[in-house]
């Protein structure tokens, strides 16, 4: 019995490792796309006026909203750049 089961276990693990790499790359690409999409969502959709119109402090509030989101995006981009640099080995290989 065990003789029969062992190869199938091996198959499972090996197929998993071969699938992992493209899967990881895919996830990484998706993550990298998330940030600009968030940026567009916050800055270039009606979301910006619905949030800022309710704000009683007028232009100051709107400015505060934009600068806050902006800062958050910059921070997220910083984190993402660090993360992506850790995962992307292509440029070295290409050289």
């Amino acid at each position: 019995m065990s003789d029969l089961e062992e190869p199938s276990v091996e198959n499972l693990t090996s197929s998993k490792t071969t699938e992992d790499k493209p899967l990881l790359a895919q996830k990484r690409n998706d993550l990298a796309a998330l940030l600009p999409i968030c940026g567009v969502l916050f800055f270039a959709t009606p979301l910006i006026s619905t949030i800022t119109n309710d704000n009683p402090s007028g232009i100051g509030g709107t400015a505060f909203y934009i600068f806050s989101i902006w800062a958050a995006l910059i921070l997220a981009a910083y984190g993402l750049a660090r993360f992506l640099r850790g995962t992307d080995t292509n440029p070295d290989e290409a050289d």
């Binding site: 990298a32 796309a33 600009p36 940026g39 270039a44 981009a77």
Partner: peptide
């Protein structure tokens, strides 16, 4: 008013999405 800020927001969006477009251009 705040319209001036758009000139900075556009490039910001391009740069935080660098992985998709700028990286390809540079490569």
């Amino acid at each position: 008013g705040l319209e001036f800020i758009t000139i900075y927001l556009g490039p910001t969006l391009v740069f935080i999405g660098w992985w998709w477009l700028l990286r390809k251009l540079v490569r």
